[in-house]
Design a binder for these strands. Structure first.
Lengths: 342, 342
DNA sequence: ATTAGCACTCACCTTAATAGAGTGCTAACA
DNA sequence: TGTTAGCACTCTATTAAGGTGAGTGCTAAT
């Protein structure tokens, strides 16, 4: 059954109103508030249809209607108008600050904070996935008699520069040779693969070098291992208390407990899905515990490649239009800031 | 008025029982459960005295007694027996893992997680205070034509090694000269002071160097600024939901909101105080929002100097004896692990 | 000094009564 | 035939009332 325009209009009004008020919407108040040009009775008839089709539901018999997950889905796909907010300048202004951060970590943390501030929901920022990123260059250099430095640069702009103690008989020249060798071998390869190779078959090939190399390689290997994946920055978790759907203690608890399980969150967000924005509404989330929530995710990029995600999570009664607008702006600014850095 | 032994005994029983049950303790159940050898009526008389002295109080007229903050204080100072738990081996076992972490950050995060796991409260670990630590050595080295490396080593074992782009005409020799100069000038000085000097009066003195130096110094300065203070690792914040004193939504909210204010938390913890453990009970906390909580803090060390703190925060009805035991063991293990690393 | 006895207090739980918002259905209307 | 007014009905939320029980303070006996 195809929904006619009037049903669409009514659904839109219901969603809009419920997003704002969190109260079940009745036919009478709907008719009054939105000048739909039809009487409450007519609305009631249409509502009965919409309910039968699963787009709205009643919390209990004598209450108004609230949108179902399916209703939100229709709204998001067809009815919603993205709000180009007047905040735009405010966001731009604030995010100018983004550029001042040298350390990627701080920048991500700050981004997350801004996101939750602008939306009043909980925000999640997923750092570039280190182990999936590709090696751009390895440098090895002596610092002094006892120590050397390794620099790993990846295509996602991540730089790691661990320092090792090495035996003095390993000369700078030799280090350079090793570096050349490693570069030849590994540039363009995902870090996780390099890790495997270093651990495995490669050992024989390294025999050609000075024996002191064997003291260095395990350290290098360990450094790679340590480039920890999946930095995850949360902000505004306590915003959840602002929403009546979480005024039940156990609901709030479940949500906050979920937010502590970084593994699960990252799964929810990186979960593949096309399009510029990925929106998961309530029961669409595969994780049981997240089925009272909606998640809107945008990606950010380097070298035209997706390297990480920005995400907002809140009740299914979420102001999707606003959230998408904010995410859109923020992700663009992230891209910009990351380009400036490299 | 000095409390006689019997009052002490009763207070101890009340605190012990209340810590376990979270229910106001009545005279009858007290007499039955603890074999005090006196009748409920006698206990009631003593209780009336204890209440008058402010060590216990009644939530309402016809309820049992609960300890006041003052009562907990007396308990902590004089009555409590530290529990040497059977967990000891378990803790030791698990914390063997600590040594495997190369990155200080990860180790601290893990320590925090263990603390909250062992205590079932919320744990806070404060990273070594970078800016308060003293410079042990600066190294500067060229890596290649375009880049140089700076290494800052502090007495707290913290190492920072930022990489800069520098003009090619700045030679390695010159870098060494600068490093020598800076070392002479700054070794032994707290980082925050160095920061100030670099920003201020020092500029003229640097004129003696090649003009390319002036391109480097601002970068060095910026790097120092970036050595961000006050890394703070939280764990087990949602444990708060296990305690009936936070079953009021607004109480839980206040607590969790407080936990998001890292500035405030760090203030609560670093707040000076002698002794091996610092215990702040309820209203003893200066921060309004923390006055429903108790905080137990231990320090950890490098070179026999306190460099950071381990902390457990929970309801005033906290199992102080157990928490102190765990903190004691964990801080010792931290000290050990940090010694092994350096 | 200690204890048994007893009247009293107050939170908590259950039940009942009431008000109010919103529905579905029917019948009238354009 | 689609729309609307009217009305009985349903169900939640709120308030009030009564009962229960744990625990106290006081008094008098030991």
């Amino acid at each position: 059954m195809k929904l006619n325009d009037r049903k669409m209009m009514i659904l839109q009004a219901i969603v809009t109103d419920y997003i704002e008020s969190a109260e079940p919407v009745g036919s009478r108040s709907l008719s009054k508030k939105y000048n739909l040009g039809i009487s409450p009775a007519t609305i009631r008839n249409e509502m009965a249809d919409l309910e039968e089709l699963g787009f709205i539901k009643q919390p209990h018999t004598s209450a108004g209607r609230i949108p179902s997950d399916k209703g939100y889905r229709l709204y998001v796909d067809q009815l919603m108008k993205i709000k180009k907010t007047a905040d735009k300048n405010r966001i731009r202004l604030k995010t100018e600050l983004l550029r001042q951060y040298n350390e990627l970590e701080q920048m991500l943390q700050y981004t997350s904070k801004l996101l939750s501030e602008f939306t009043n929901y909980t925000s999640i920022v997923l750092a570039p996935q280190v182990k999936k990123s590709r090696l751009k260059e390895i440098k090895l250099a002596r610092i002094d008699k006892e120590n050397m430095l390794a620099v790993f640069v990846t295509n996602t702009g991540l730089i790691q520069n661990p320092i090792f103690r090495v035996p003095p008989e390993l000369t700078g020249d030799e280090l350079e040779k090793i570096a050349n060798f490693l570069n030849e071998k590994f540039v363009g390869m995902p870090l996780e693969e390099i890790e495997n190779r270093l651990a495995g078959t490669l050992k024989e090939e390294l025999e050609i070098f000075h024996s002191a190399v064997h003291a260095v390689m395990p350290e290098l290997f360990h450094a790679l291992e340590q480039m920890s994946d999946m930095g995850l920055y949360l902000s505004g978790t306590t915003n959840i208390f602002n929403f009546p759907e979480f005024s039940d203690l156990s609901k709030a608890r479940d949500f906050l407990t979920l937010m502590e399980e970084k593994q699960v969150i990252s799964q929810l967000i990186t979960d593949p899905g096309g399009g510029q924005f990925k929106i998961s509404i309530g029961s669409e989330n595969l994780i049981q515990k997240a089925q009272d929530c909606s998640i809107v995710t945008a990606s950010y990029h380097m070298d035209n490649q997706t390297v990480g995600w920005l995400s907002v999570i809140g009740p299914t009664r979420m102001d999707y239009a606003h959230v998408i607008d904010v995410l859109d702006q923020m992700s663009q600014l992230m891209d910009q800031a990351l380009k400036d850095k490299s």
